[in-house]
Protein backbone atom coordinates (compact mmCIF):
# COMPACT_ATOMS: atom_id res chain seq x y z
CA UNK A 1 0.00 0.00 0.00
CA UNK A 2 1.49 3.35 -0.98
CA UNK A 3 -1.05 5.64 0.70
CA UNK A 4 -3.26 4.64 3.59
CA UNK A 5 -5.38 6.88 5.78
CA UNK A 6 -7.57 5.90 8.71
CA UNK A 7 -10.27 8.17 10.10
CA UNK A 8 -8.20 11.10 8.92
CA UNK A 9 -9.73 14.33 10.17
CA UNK A 10 -8.52 17.87 9.83
CA UNK A 11 -10.47 20.87 11.00
CA UNK A 12 -8.95 24.30 10.93
CA UNK A 13 -10.20 27.85 11.22
CA UNK A 14 -13.57 28.34 9.71
CA UNK A 15 -12.88 25.85 6.96
CA UNK A 16 -14.58 22.51 6.98
CA UNK A 17 -11.47 20.44 6.36
CA UNK A 18 -11.90 16.67 6.11
CA UNK A 19 -13.68 14.16 8.30
CA UNK A 20 -12.88 10.48 8.87
CA UNK A 21 -11.27 10.00 5.49
CA UNK A 22 -10.13 6.42 5.02
CA UNK A 23 -8.51 5.60 1.71
CA UNK A 24 -5.93 3.21 0.35
CA UNK A 25 -3.89 3.70 -2.79
CA UNK A 26 -2.05 0.70 -4.13
CA UNK A 27 1.37 0.63 -5.72
CA UNK A 28 1.35 1.19 -9.46
CA UNK A 29 -2.15 2.62 -9.75
CA UNK A 30 -3.35 5.99 -10.90
CA UNK A 31 -5.84 7.04 -8.27
CA UNK A 32 -8.23 9.82 -9.15
CA UNK A 33 -9.32 12.02 -6.29
CA UNK A 34 -12.45 13.80 -7.35
CA UNK A 35 -14.43 16.54 -5.78
CA UNK A 36 -15.56 20.09 -6.38
CA UNK A 37 -13.56 23.03 -5.10
CA UNK A 38 -13.62 23.11 -1.31
CA UNK A 39 -14.54 19.44 -0.96
CA UNK A 40 -11.32 18.57 0.89
CA UNK A 41 -9.01 17.30 -1.87
CA UNK A 42 -6.24 19.80 -1.19
CA UNK A 43 -6.60 19.44 2.57
CA UNK A 44 -6.12 15.68 2.24
CA UNK A 45 -3.01 16.16 0.13
CA UNK A 46 -1.59 18.74 2.51
CA UNK A 47 -2.04 16.36 5.42
CA UNK A 48 -0.27 13.60 3.45
CA UNK A 49 2.69 15.95 2.91
CA UNK A 50 2.60 17.17 6.54
CA UNK A 51 1.85 20.74 5.56
CA UNK A 52 -1.19 20.34 7.81
CA UNK A 53 -1.16 18.26 10.96
CA UNK A 54 -4.17 15.94 11.31
CA UNK A 55 -6.66 16.77 14.04
CA UNK A 56 -7.28 13.06 14.51
CA UNK A 57 -6.75 9.80 12.70
CA UNK A 58 -3.57 8.86 10.89
CA UNK A 59 -2.04 8.71 7.46
CA UNK A 60 0.81 6.64 6.08
CA UNK A 61 2.75 6.93 2.85
CA UNK A 62 5.02 3.98 1.97
CA UNK A 63 4.10 2.67 5.42
CA UNK A 64 5.69 5.73 7.05
CA UNK A 65 3.81 8.07 9.35
CA UNK A 66 3.14 11.37 7.60
CA UNK A 67 3.94 13.42 10.69
CA UNK A 68 6.98 11.55 12.05
CA UNK A 69 8.58 10.62 8.73
CA UNK A 70 7.57 13.51 6.56
CA UNK A 71 11.06 14.20 5.17
CA UNK A 72 11.59 10.57 4.17
CA UNK A 73 8.19 10.55 2.53
CA UNK A 74 8.84 13.75 0.60
CA UNK A 75 12.16 12.33 -0.60
CA UNK A 76 10.07 9.80 -2.53
CA UNK A 77 7.21 11.99 -3.62
CA UNK A 78 6.86 14.39 -6.51
CA UNK A 79 4.38 17.05 -5.58
CA UNK A 80 2.52 19.55 -7.69
CA UNK A 81 0.51 21.85 -5.42
CA UNK A 82 -2.86 23.09 -6.60
CA UNK A 83 -1.92 26.71 -6.09
CA UNK A 84 1.71 27.59 -6.12
CA UNK A 85 4.25 30.20 -7.11
CA UNK A 86 7.88 29.89 -8.10
CA UNK A 87 10.63 32.38 -7.34
CA UNK A 88 9.99 35.23 -9.79
CA UNK A 89 13.60 36.01 -10.53
CA UNK A 90 14.75 32.48 -11.26
CA UNK A 91 14.48 30.67 -14.56
CA UNK A 92 13.03 27.18 -14.78
CA UNK A 93 16.51 25.76 -15.21
CA UNK A 94 17.86 27.55 -12.13
CA UNK A 95 14.91 26.30 -10.09
CA UNK A 96 15.34 22.74 -11.29
CA UNK A 97 19.06 22.85 -10.48
CA UNK A 98 18.22 24.04 -6.97
CA UNK A 99 15.62 21.30 -6.46
CA UNK A 100 18.06 18.75 -7.90
CA UNK A 101 20.63 19.78 -5.29
CA UNK A 102 18.02 19.40 -2.55
CA UNK A 103 17.22 15.90 -3.81
CA UNK A 104 20.75 14.83 -4.61
CA UNK A 105 19.89 14.44 -8.30
CA UNK A 106 22.94 14.85 -10.53
CA UNK A 107 21.48 14.24 -13.98
CA UNK A 108 18.86 16.64 -15.30
CA UNK A 109 18.42 14.71 -18.54
CA UNK A 110 14.90 13.56 -17.71
CA UNK A 111 13.97 17.11 -16.67
CA UNK A 112 15.00 18.41 -20.11
CA UNK A 113 13.08 15.58 -21.77
CA UNK A 114 9.93 16.40 -19.80
CA UNK A 115 10.36 20.10 -20.50
CA UNK A 116 10.62 19.42 -24.21
CA UNK A 117 7.58 17.15 -24.26
CA UNK A 118 5.47 19.67 -22.35
CA UNK A 119 6.90 22.67 -24.18
CA UNK A 120 8.19 24.24 -20.97
CA UNK A 121 10.54 27.19 -21.41
CA UNK A 122 13.35 26.72 -18.91
CA UNK A 123 15.32 29.78 -19.98
CA UNK A 124 12.99 32.60 -18.97
CA UNK A 125 12.46 33.97 -15.46
CA UNK A 126 9.20 32.92 -13.81
CA UNK A 127 7.87 36.48 -13.77
CA UNK A 128 7.82 36.43 -17.57
CA UNK A 129 5.90 33.19 -17.87
CA UNK A 130 2.15 32.75 -18.27
CA UNK A 131 0.16 30.64 -15.82
CA UNK A 132 0.19 27.71 -18.20
CA UNK A 133 3.95 27.87 -18.64
CA UNK A 134 4.50 28.07 -14.90
CA UNK A 135 2.26 25.02 -14.56
CA UNK A 136 4.53 23.17 -16.99
CA UNK A 137 7.58 24.02 -14.85
CA UNK A 138 5.59 22.86 -11.83
CA UNK A 139 4.90 19.53 -13.53
CA UNK A 140 8.55 19.10 -14.52
CA UNK A 141 9.75 19.80 -10.96
CA UNK A 142 7.27 17.24 -9.65
CA UNK A 143 8.39 14.50 -12.02
CA UNK A 144 12.07 15.12 -12.93
CA UNK A 145 13.49 13.05 -10.07
CA UNK A 146 11.42 9.99 -11.06
CA UNK A 147 9.65 9.55 -7.72
CA UNK A 148 7.80 6.31 -6.93
CA UNK A 149 4.76 8.40 -5.96
CA UNK A 150 3.40 11.51 -7.63
CA UNK A 151 0.85 13.67 -5.87
CA UNK A 152 -0.69 16.04 -8.37
CA UNK A 153 -3.29 18.59 -7.36
CA UNK A 154 -5.25 19.83 -10.38
CA UNK A 155 -2.29 19.16 -12.69
CA UNK A 156 -3.83 20.27 -15.98
CA UNK A 157 -4.97 23.71 -14.81
CA UNK A 158 -3.87 26.35 -17.31
CA UNK A 159 -2.50 23.85 -19.86
CA UNK A 160 -3.69 23.99 -23.44
CA UNK A 161 -5.42 20.86 -24.82
CA UNK A 162 -2.38 19.52 -26.68
CA UNK A 163 -0.17 19.80 -23.61
CA UNK A 164 -2.92 18.23 -21.49
CA UNK A 165 -2.92 15.32 -23.92
CA UNK A 166 0.85 14.94 -23.67
CA UNK A 167 0.69 15.14 -19.91
CA UNK A 168 -1.94 12.39 -19.69
CA UNK A 169 0.27 10.31 -21.95
CA UNK A 170 3.16 10.81 -19.51
CA UNK A 171 0.90 9.75 -16.63
CA UNK A 172 0.05 6.53 -18.48
CA UNK A 173 3.77 5.93 -19.07
CA UNK A 174 4.47 6.44 -15.37
CA UNK A 175 1.82 3.85 -14.56
CA UNK A 176 3.50 1.55 -17.08
CA UNK A 177 6.73 1.95 -15.12
CA UNK A 178 4.92 0.88 -11.96
CA UNK A 179 4.81 4.32 -10.37
CA UNK A 180 1.85 5.44 -8.32
CA UNK A 181 -0.03 8.62 -9.14
CA UNK A 182 -2.45 10.36 -6.81
CA UNK A 183 -4.37 12.56 -9.20
CA UNK A 184 -6.60 15.18 -7.65
CA UNK A 185 -8.95 16.89 -10.04
CA UNK A 186 -12.37 18.26 -10.65
CA UNK A 187 -12.05 17.64 -14.40
CA UNK A 188 -13.83 14.33 -14.66
CA UNK A 189 -13.10 13.56 -18.27
CA UNK A 190 -9.32 13.44 -17.71
CA UNK A 191 -9.72 11.36 -14.57
CA UNK A 192 -11.89 8.93 -16.50
CA UNK A 193 -9.16 8.58 -19.11
CA UNK A 194 -6.16 7.84 -16.93
CA UNK A 195 -7.31 6.69 -13.51
CA UNK A 196 -7.66 3.07 -12.44
CA UNK A 197 -9.74 3.93 -9.42
CA UNK A 198 -11.62 7.00 -8.33
CA UNK A 199 -12.28 8.34 -4.86
CA UNK A 200 -15.03 10.89 -4.53
CA UNK A 201 -14.84 13.42 -1.74
CA UNK A 202 -17.67 15.75 -0.87
CA UNK A 203 -18.05 18.14 2.05
CA UNK A 204 -14.86 16.76 3.54
CA UNK A 205 -16.03 13.14 3.51
CA UNK A 206 -14.93 10.36 1.20
CA UNK A 207 -18.24 9.17 -0.21
CA UNK A 208 -17.07 6.40 -2.51
CA UNK A 209 -14.04 4.63 -3.90
CA UNK A 210 -14.53 2.52 -7.00
CA UNK A 211 -12.61 1.28 -9.99
CA UNK A 212 -13.26 3.94 -12.61
CA UNK A 213 -15.04 1.43 -14.90
CA UNK A 214 -17.17 0.08 -12.07
CA UNK A 215 -18.20 3.55 -11.05
CA UNK A 216 -19.41 4.19 -14.56
CA UNK A 217 -20.93 0.74 -15.12
CA UNK A 218 -22.70 0.40 -11.82
CA UNK A 219 -24.62 3.57 -12.25
CA UNK A 220 -27.75 4.51 -14.16
CA UNK A 221 -28.33 4.33 -17.90
CA UNK A 222 -30.13 6.58 -20.32
CA UNK A 223 -32.62 4.43 -22.26
CA UNK A 224 -34.50 5.29 -25.44
CA UNK A 225 -36.89 2.75 -26.93
CA UNK A 226 -38.64 3.19 -30.28
CA UNK A 227 -41.43 0.75 -31.20
CA UNK A 228 -43.24 0.21 -34.47
CA UNK A 229 -46.40 1.66 -32.96
CA UNK A 230 -47.39 3.49 -29.76
CA UNK A 231 -47.32 1.21 -26.72
CA UNK A 232 -48.87 1.42 -23.27
CA UNK A 233 -46.21 3.35 -21.31
CA UNK A 234 -47.56 2.46 -17.86
CA UNK A 235 -45.73 -0.89 -17.39
CA UNK A 236 -42.47 0.83 -18.31
CA UNK A 237 -43.14 3.73 -15.99
CA UNK A 238 -43.90 1.24 -13.23
CA UNK A 239 -40.56 -0.54 -13.56
CA UNK A 240 -38.39 -0.28 -10.49
CA UNK A 241 -35.68 2.39 -10.83
CA UNK A 242 -37.26 4.26 -13.74
CA UNK A 243 -36.99 8.02 -13.53
CA UNK A 244 -37.38 11.02 -15.84
CA UNK A 245 -39.87 9.06 -17.88
CA UNK A 246 -41.16 10.51 -21.18
CA UNK A 247 -43.52 8.94 -23.72
CA UNK A 248 -44.06 10.45 -27.15
CA UNK A 249 -46.01 8.25 -29.52
CA UNK A 250 -43.99 5.08 -30.21
CA UNK A 251 -40.95 6.48 -28.39
CA UNK A 252 -40.17 6.06 -24.71
CA UNK A 253 -37.18 7.57 -22.97
CA UNK A 254 -36.20 7.31 -19.33
CA UNK A 255 -33.33 6.92 -16.93
CA UNK A 256 -32.98 3.43 -15.53
CA UNK A 257 -31.43 2.89 -12.12
CA UNK A 258 -32.82 -0.60 -11.73
CA UNK A 259 -32.74 -4.04 -13.29
CA UNK A 260 -31.96 -4.11 -17.01
CA UNK A 261 -33.33 -7.61 -17.55
CA UNK A 262 -36.92 -6.71 -16.63
CA UNK A 263 -36.88 -3.73 -18.92
CA UNK A 264 -35.57 -5.77 -21.86
CA UNK A 265 -38.16 -8.51 -21.34
CA UNK A 266 -40.94 -5.95 -21.15
CA UNK A 267 -39.74 -4.26 -24.33
CA UNK A 268 -39.51 -7.64 -26.10
CA UNK A 269 -43.29 -8.00 -25.86
CA UNK A 270 -43.50 -5.35 -28.57
CA UNK A 271 -41.82 -4.84 -31.91
CA UNK A 272 -38.73 -2.83 -31.19
CA UNK A 273 -37.48 -0.60 -34.01
CA UNK A 274 -34.61 1.06 -32.18
CA UNK A 275 -33.00 0.88 -28.77
CA UNK A 276 -30.40 3.23 -27.32
CA UNK A 277 -28.77 2.35 -24.05
CA UNK A 278 -26.21 4.95 -23.00
CA UNK A 279 -23.99 5.00 -20.01
CA UNK A 280 -23.83 8.39 -18.27
CA UNK A 281 -20.72 10.50 -18.43
CA UNK A 282 -18.60 10.66 -15.33
CA UNK A 283 -19.82 14.24 -15.01
CA UNK A 284 -23.38 13.02 -14.65
CA UNK A 285 -22.40 10.37 -12.14
CA UNK A 286 -20.49 12.99 -10.25
CA UNK A 287 -23.46 15.34 -10.20
CA UNK A 288 -25.56 12.52 -8.86
CA UNK A 289 -23.26 12.25 -5.88
CA UNK A 290 -23.36 15.96 -5.29
CA UNK A 291 -27.03 16.59 -5.97
CA UNK A 292 -30.09 16.39 -3.69
CA UNK A 293 -29.46 14.67 -0.40
CA UNK A 294 -25.89 14.11 -1.40
CA UNK A 295 -26.16 10.37 -0.85
CA UNK A 296 -25.15 7.93 -3.50
CA UNK A 297 -28.28 7.71 -5.62
CA UNK A 298 -27.20 4.53 -7.27
CA UNK A 299 -29.87 1.80 -7.38
Amino acid sequence: MVIKTENLTKTYGRSRGIRDVGLSVEEGEVFGFLGPNGAGKTTTIRVLLDFLHPTSGRAEVFGLDTVKDSVRIRANVGNLPGEFALEDRLTGEQLLRFFARLRGVKDLGYAYELAERLGADLSRPMRRLSRGNKQKIGLVQAMFHRPPLLILDEPTGGLDPLVQEEFLKIVRELRGEGRTVFFSSHVLSEVERVCDRVGIIRDGELVDVEPTDALINKSFRHVRLVFDEPVDPRPFRALEGVRSFRAEGPELSFTLYGDLDRMVKLAARHTLVNMEYERPSLEEIFLTYYGGSGRNNDG
Binding site: F51, V71, R74, G78, N79, P81, E83, A85, L102, G138
Partner: peptide, 12 residues
Protein backbone atom coordinates in the same frame (compact mmCIF):
# COMPACT_ATOMS: atom_id res chain seq x y z
CA UNK B 1 2.81 30.41 -2.49
CA UNK B 2 6.48 29.46 -2.92
CA UNK B 3 6.63 27.56 0.38
CA UNK B 4 4.52 24.66 -0.90
CA UNK B 5 6.89 23.89 -3.75
CA UNK B 6 9.97 24.33 -1.58
CA UNK B 7 8.65 22.09 1.20
CA UNK B 8 7.58 19.53 -1.37
CA UNK B 9 11.29 18.73 -1.35
CA UNK B 10 12.81 16.62 1.42
CA UNK B 11 13.70 19.54 3.69
CA UNK B 12 12.94 19.35 7.41
Amino acid sequence: GTLDVLLGNPIP
